[in-house]
């Protein structure tokens, strides 16, 4: 029995080599010998990096909230319909998730870039004032694309799993439709929705391809800052890249842990 546990060893060894070891050097390397917190102090004192964190945080929070909302509505609408249609929506969400990053941004450029197909149409109609794809609104749009896709894949099963009889019971009591969802339906699954939200948030915080394809190194996004320090011609300050990575990890993992704590408490009570 016990000896057969050894079958997990090769995988654990790979995880140690390819995740644990590199990650631990990032942690250790973020502290400067002699002046341990110097890199962190530099980040906290740098308007450049603080700006990147505030932009990334705002973008992630906004697209998580919007993405979740946009994913929940069709999930509710799909509940009343056939299973096949829900499966189709899941499939579309999955394709969207795989299409995220470079291809989706290229698609947005073809449609909404300065010479885009839709841009030309809207410009003629006088509706394109003030929209620039290579800016904040473009980031929101391209981030929303994958947030909605992944959100749909994660939210649909949660909404589908709500027992049908409570919906019918609420309907009998005159609490049907939107009132049911506001007062019963969504509160019943708030824990699952919260963990979906933390995953969406973490995903947005850690996204690199979308922002980098859209705006290159001029994107004020934390992952792009890190990538710049790593892939630049000169690897000027590895310590700084390490400390930035740790700051990103903390911001991104804290909500996941917090949500797990909250939901664990809830199930015990």
């Amino acid at each position: 029995m016990l000896s057969r546990r050894l079958y997990v060893l090769p995988f654990l060894a790979l995880l140690a080599l390819i995740v644990v070891w590199p990650l631990s050097t990032v942690v250790v390397g973020s502290f400067k010998p002699g002046a341990p917190l110097e890199h962190y102090a530099y980040i906290l004192g740098s308007r450049f990096y603080l700006k990147a964190f505030s932009v990334t945080l705002k973008l992630s929070l906004l697209t998580t909230a919007l993405g979740l909302a946009i994913a929940v509505l069709p999930a509710i609408a799909l509940r009343a319909r056939s299973r096949r249609l829900s499966d189709l929506a899941l499939t579309i969400g999955n394709i969207g998730a795989n299409f995220a990053g470079v291809p989706s941004v290229l698609a947005f450029m073809i449609l909404l870039g300065s010479n885009g197909i839709v841009t030309k149409l809207l410009r003629e109609a006088g509706l394109m004032e003030g929209f620039d794809l290579y800016s904040w609104s473009g980031l929101v749009l391209t981030y929303l694309f994958f947030q909605v896709s992944i959100g749909t894949v994660l939210v649909l099963p949660v909404i589908t799993a709500i027992p049908r009889d409570i919906e019918e019971a609420a309907d009998l009591l005159g609490q049907g439709g939107a009132r049911f969802w506001a007062s019963v339906g969504l509160p019943v699954v708030w824990r699952q929705l919260l963990s979906v939200a933390t995953l969406l948030f973490a995903n947005a915080m850690g996204t690199y391809a979308t922002a980098y394809t859209l705006m290159g190194t001029s994107a004020q996004i934390v992952t792009v800052r890190i990538g710049e320090l790593v892939a630049g011609d000169v690897f000027a300050d590895p310590g700084l890249a390490n400390a930035l990575s740790i700051c990103l990890l903390v911001v991104l993992i804290a909500p996941i842990l917090l949500a797990q704590l909250l939901t664990a408490k809830g199930t015990k009570a």
């Binding site: 590199p22 990650l23 996204t207 990890l249």
Partner: peptide, 17 residues
Amino acid sequence: VLPYAVPAVVLVVGYLR
């Protein structure tokens, strides 16, 4: 949740060292 919790960029920083 590992691919969500540890972004690729962060691991790349470690790989380079």
